[in-house]
Each structure stands twice: as C-alpha cells, then as structure tokens.
Simulated scan of single mutants.
Amino acid sequence: MATNPFEDAEGRYVVLVNDEGQHSLWPARIEHPAGWELVKEESGKQECMEFIEANWTDMRPRSVVAALAG
C-alpha cells in the first residue's frame, strides 16, 4: 500500500464534484469533505480518472463561466 492514499495505484477511489463543478479523485476509504457530491461510485483509479477526463471538460469554475457570460 502506498503511504499517500491519494497516490495508491491499486487503491479504490470515488469521484466528487463541488458546487463550482470541479472534480476530485478521492480515496474511497476516506470520508469525503463537506460541500462535495459523490458522482462516481467506488472503482479503480484508472476508471475514475477516465470518468473525470470525460466529464470535466471545462476547468473553469462555474462562477467564472457565469461571470464571463453575463
């Protein structure tokens, strides 16, 4: 097991999203922080990274996108 739970290639992860639409790869065994919603159930790191890559296509926070549009 890696000493850093965020860098365990063999670990189990989930994907979280905050109110700004930012995604986070999160170790499944660690309680996720307040303000973050679970959007991908527990799976391997690679599968979670692929989910993030496919779904987080604009790195700008939602508030920045809204400010630029309005």
Rank of each mutant, 00 (worst) to 15 (best):
A2S: 15
A2Y: 07
A2P: 06
A2T: 13
T3W: 06
N4I: 11
F6E: 06
F6Q: 06
F6M: 13
D8S: 04
A9T: 14
A9L: 15
E10Y: 09
G11P: 04
Y13I: 07
Y13E: 02
Y13T: 04
V15R: 00
V15P: 01
V15S: 00
V15Y: 00
L16G: 07
L16F: 07
L16C: 10
V17Q: 14
V17F: 00
N18T: 06
N18L: 06
D19V: 13
D19K: 15
D19N: 15
G21A: 03
G21N: 02
Q22N: 09
H23C: 09
S24G: 13
S24C: 10
L25Q: 07
L25W: 04
W26A: 04
P27Q: 07
P27V: 08
A28K: 06
R29F: 08
R29W: 04
R29V: 13
R29T: 12
E31F: 09
E31C: 10
H32D: 03
P33R: 12
A34F: 08
W36V: 07
W36Q: 15
E37R: 13
V39H: 01
E41T: 15
E41R: 14
E42V: 15
S43G: 14
S43P: 01
G44W: 01
K45Y: 00
Q46D: 13
Q46A: 13
Q46P: 00
E47S: 13
E47Y: 01
C48T: 05
M49N: 13
M49F: 02
E50Y: 02
F51N: 00
F51R: 00
I52D: 02
E53G: 05
E53M: 09
E53N: 10
N55G: 04
N55F: 05
N55P: 03
W56G: 10
T57Y: 01
T57Q: 12
T57I: 14
D58R: 06
D58H: 02
M59N: 08
R60N: 03
R60S: 09
P61A: 05
R62V: 12
R62E: 06
S63R: 11
S63L: 03
V64H: 06
V64Q: 12
V65H: 00
A67V: 06
A67M: 12
A69K: 13
A69N: 09
A69C: 05
G70K: 10
G70I: 02
G70Q: 10
